[in-house]
């Protein structure tokens, strides 16, 4: 093989693992992309910031919905279904949850915002969805979410839906490999 061929070969052989790694790099890149664009209605934790608080907000209705993913027998629902709010102010809403089984279980709630272009303007300071919830048999809890919808919300949006899907993750406790979180922290 001549020298030029060897050089080409080495370049290509290096390119393959790089592209393989790029495939994995798409995971955090996608998260960043989601956070910036609100793609998929994903919501990330944000810092408290006075800039977001506005004197003059506009009225908005915030609708909460809850879904149990399959095999999740807990009772899980919003305490209030619709909250009339104003943009640029902090509110706290709660979801009630109850372990209706006779075993100790762990759950994780996954948030989603619709319409998706509202997601980037919904700021959560605290949310139960950032943590796992462990409940003893029959135990009940009230889970809070503290949030603000920024003034920059596109004006055609009059109604924002905040949905939580609750998943049973009892069986895959202890595994911290949830790829997204590693990179986000």
């Amino acid at each position: 093989m001549n020298k030029g061929a060897k050089k080409t070969l080495i370049k290509l052989v290096v390119a393959v693992p790089l592209m393989f790694a790029f495939g994995f790099a798409l995971v955090p890149l996608y998260d960043v992309f989601c956070e910036v664009t609100g793609l998929n209605g994903k919501v990330f934790q944000s810092e408290h910031s006075d800039d977001l608080i506005a004197e003059q907000g506009r009225p908005l209705s915030l609708q909460f919905i809850s879904t149990n993913n399959e095999n999740m027998p807990w009772k899980f629902e919003p305490s209030v279904k619709v909250l009339k709010i104003e943009t640029g102010k902090y509110y706290t809403a709660t979801f009630s949850v109850k372990n209706t089984t006779n075993k100790k279980m762990t759950a994780q709630a996954v948030p989603s915002v619709a319409p998706s272009n509202a997601a980037a303007h919904l700021k959560k300071l605290e949310c139960f969805c950032f943590e796992k919830q462990e409940l003893m048999p029959g135990e009940e809890a009230l889970l809070p979410v503290k949030l603000l919808v920024s003034n920059e919300l596109p004006s055609n949006i009059k109604n924002v839906i905040l949905s939580y899907t609750i998943f049973d993750i009892t069986d895959y406790n202890d595994i911290e490999l949830a790829s997204n979180q590693i990179v986000m922290e």
């Binding site: 592209m19 790029f22 996608y30 998943f167 490999l177 949830a178 997204n180």
Partner: peptide
Amino acid sequence: PVLAGAVTMMLMDIHFGTSFFNAAGGGD
């Protein structure tokens, strides 16, 4: 290689408890 990456992530989700694509573990 990107396809290889995708199926590797699947393999890890199925057998090694990761959550690349599983919403329950923070995946998508």
